[in-house]
Amino acid sequence: MQRKSITLYIGAVLVSILFLMMIVSFFWTPYGPNEMNTKIALQAPSWTYPFGTDNFGRDIFSRILEGSKTAFLVGITSIMIALTFGFIIGGIAGYFGGIVDEVLMRIIDSILAIPGILFAIMLVSVFNTGMQNTILALGIMGIPTFARVIRSGFMQVKEFDFVKSSKVKGAGSFRIIFKHILPNIFSQIIVASTLFFSGAILAESGLSYLGLGVQPPDPSWGRMLSEAQAYMTNAPWYIGITGIFIVLLVLGFNMLGDGLRDLKEKRN
């Protein structure tokens, strides 16, 4: 097997397993994720509690399952926001070109100079914390990235002969964009979305760790880490296992994205 396809394969397997976990958590968790019992607080992993228990005696495995919902929800919805606005901005810039493109891209590049996490923190400080605002902040954080990808896709496809000929035939802009350009940049959008997903998960866990992201009772792996911090020495598994799940999800999407990009390049 080729090295490139191994990356794709491992990424797809990781993402599928975690996705399945998320689906399962809707129907079943071994214990109630918020079920407290201080008598069994901070227990080490065992057959009864595979990942141990936290400071309130809650089953960590159940909480990780529950937290996977938040991770996927944040990832998918913030991609949808970023993609929608990125498509509008990047599409306008790429389709019309000229001065419009020049101005829009200058703004986009300036925003990209600010690190994503700083930009997200800035938005959250104005919007306030909570799940919805976190999603909104991460979605806005992603707009410049998607606008860039979509603009360059538009620029390339616009020059293809079949697009030019359909323009000559009198097809409207709307038809050209949705019938011809969109299907041709679809794979680029998928790659960008996959890679952005991992960025969004990292940013969400960072924000939630700082107390600026998802708030209780909504479960979040980042928040679990900030709770686990106080018990680092007497319950190292709590912080260890929770973090490993963030790494696995981010790693899965990174490898999937890289694998898909290599696959696309090979095809071209």
């Binding site: 990356t7 866990s205 680092m232 020495t233």
Partner: peptide, 18 residues
Amino acid sequence: TQLGISTPSFWLGFILIM
């Protein structure tokens, strides 16, 4: 290297402390 890129730096910070 993929693992290095995918690990949240703050979690790595905890591990280094531990």
